[in-house]
Design a binder for these strands. Structure first.
Length: 504
DNA sequence: GGCTGCGGGCAAA
DNA sequence: TTTGCCCGCAGCC
């Protein structure tokens, strides 16, 4: 049973998995000695034990769009995944990425959402249901017991990650701000124009200096769609770039792509982005600005560096890569079908191979392969995942052996993306690390690699002996995602980005 | 308006 | 009996 396999793997890393318990147990582990760091994107058959003081756990938050499901048990909150909303035509955005909206939790709102058009191609939107748990949606269970919040997930999400809740909220709030700032000047100009103009005062957007077609605006203007100025959800005070984005750029770099960057662990996988990062790695940019006090702490081992560059892409694979693959499958985009596959759009070289490397085992991603003892994990994981990948000879891999190597490595690292790490709060100091990560002086583009880095089990890589690396995976998953937003935006827009780390 | 939690009720396995 | 799912309601933001 997959759950067993996964649990074996997770038990090495997650405190919650170390203990034997089930969410339905009459008696839960009493007074856990440690707690897991909150994980925004739990995936697989995992269990975590959060502190009852953990705000996000208290709110039963999840990056996935989870809706409440009645399990007729007042002590256990059950939620099921709604999947992700994508463009029915699977249109590619300007940067090659794809639309992945967060389904509205409310049924009514969700129906309304699906009636909207794709902000990019105006095609219909499509809800991709989650079928990761024996054909049913992945379910999450929450249970408060004593000073601990027990979390158990059942199923492996078989769809791309949607926007996280924070992203969606941030985007909406940003949109509202934009609309407010947009209409206020309009009113002023309208009043002014009334003096010597026959222009109607209906506030029609056609009267506005918006260079885009009104219909585009109508679509884009819906708060349910990503908009330009997509804020970095993890950075509530990212008004700097919100402000710099006006309505005239709504259709510019499309909003959507930008949205994607808001969470590297979710969206970075897109080809151009990976490509950029790969280049950054090659230029010597530190992949660990958020994890190491200085670049000198980074092992000089070229393989290590190489691996990290892959690990960056790993995230991609573990999330958006899956998305791409899923989308491709979902819409019959496989190159074999004679249509240009995603990987055929651009020659991204090695990185593209990683980027487009799909996993063709939706039922059991490599991440759920058994995890060997800590000392041998890295190597063995590579081996096993290599085998796994060889099982499916992706067209892109046929081009080069190195590609295959890369894919294998990425798959192995991706495999650990969602593996929970044992969290020992007393041994960490996430805020410091985060602050460091958020330091403007540390905004080296390559730091995004840290996201992947931290999402890997420390035990798997002997190089990671830095005490500061004993942090929790998901704390980084969240925090560094924010960094992804920042760096992503910086990389693309080249604009200064100020924020504070209060949310951390 | 939307999110969230709760709970009644129904259907299928 | 269990599980999944629909629906309505209320509180909250």
């Amino acid at each position: 049973m997959p759950a067993d396999t996964t649990q074996d793997a997770d038990s090495v890393l997650s405190y919650g998995m170390k203990l034997t318990w089930d969410i339905n147990d009459p008696q839960m582990p009493q007074e856990p000695a440690h707690f897991d760091h909150f994980r925004e994107w739990p995936d697989g058959y995992v269990r975590f034990i959060y502190s009852s003081q953990e705000k996000k756990a208290q709110r039963h938050l999840s990056g996935w769009a989870m809706r409440n499901t009645n399990n007729h048990n007042g002590h256990i909150l059950k939620k099921s995944c709604l999947g992700v909303v994508v463009c029915a035509q699977a249109c590619a955005l300007q940067d090659g990425s794809h639309l992945q909206l967060r389904p509205a939790i409310c049924d009514k709102a969700r129906l309304k959402q699906q009636k909207k058009a794709c902000p990019n191609c105006h095609s219909a939107l499509e809800l991709v249901p989650c079928r990761g748990h024996s054909g049913y949606p992945v379910t999450n269970f929450w249970r408060l017991d004593g000073n601990a919040i027990f979390f158990q997930a059942k199923g492996v999400h078989d769809h791309p990650r949607p926007e996280s809740k924070s992203e969606t909220e941030a985007r909406r709030s940003a949109f509202k701000r934009q609309m407010v700032s947009f209409h206020q000047p309009q009113k002023r100009s309208s009043r002014e124009s009334q003096v010597g103009s026959t222009q109607d005062c209906s506030g029609n957007l056609n009267n506005m200096p918006v260079p885009e077609p009104p219909e585009l605006f109508d679509v884009t203007a819906d708060a349910s769609f990503p908009i330009t100025g997509q804020p970095c959800p993890s950075f509530p005070n990212s008004d700097v770039h919100r402000v710099t984005c006006d309505l005239t750029t709504f259709q510019g770099d499309v909003t959507l792509p930008f949205q994607k960057y808001s969470n590297p662990s979710i969206y970075l996988p897109r080809p151009p982005w990976n490509y950029e990062l790969a280049g950054l790695v090659g230029t010597g940019s530190s992949p660990y600005p958020t994890l190491y006090k200085d670049s000198s702490s980074i092992p000089d081992d070229t393989d290590w560096v190489h691996l990290n560059s892959l690990q960056y892409n790993v995230s991609s694979y573990g999330s958006y890569e899956r998305s791409l693959d899923f989308t491709a499958k979902y819409h019959g985009w496989k190159p074999a079908h004679g249509k240009p596959g995603l990987e055929e759009r651009v020659d991204y070289g090695q990185c593209q191979a990683v980027t487009t490397c799909p996993y063709y085992n939706p039922e059991r991603p490599c991440r759920y392969l058994p995890v060997p003892p800590a000392g041998t994990q890295a190597l063995q994981t590579v081996i096993t995942t290599t085998v796994a990948y060889q099982a499916y000879q992706h067209p892109a891999l046929k081009h080069s052996d190195s590609m295959q190597e890369v894919s294998s490595l990425s798959s192995c690292t991706c495999g650990s993306e969602n593996l929970p790490m044992p969290i020992y709060p007393q041994a960490l100091d996430p805020p410091d690390a985060v602050i460091q990560a958020a330091s403007p002086s540390e905004r080296a583009p390559g730091k995004l690699l840290g996201d992947c880095q931290v999402n890997r089990p420390t035990l798997a890589f002997p190089q990671e002996t830095d005490p500061s690396r004993t942090d929790g995976a998901d704390a980084w998953d969240v925090c560094l995602s924010g960094m992804g937003s920042v760096t992503g935006y910086l990389d693309r827009a080249g604009q200064p980005f100020n924020f504070d780390s209060e949310e951390f």
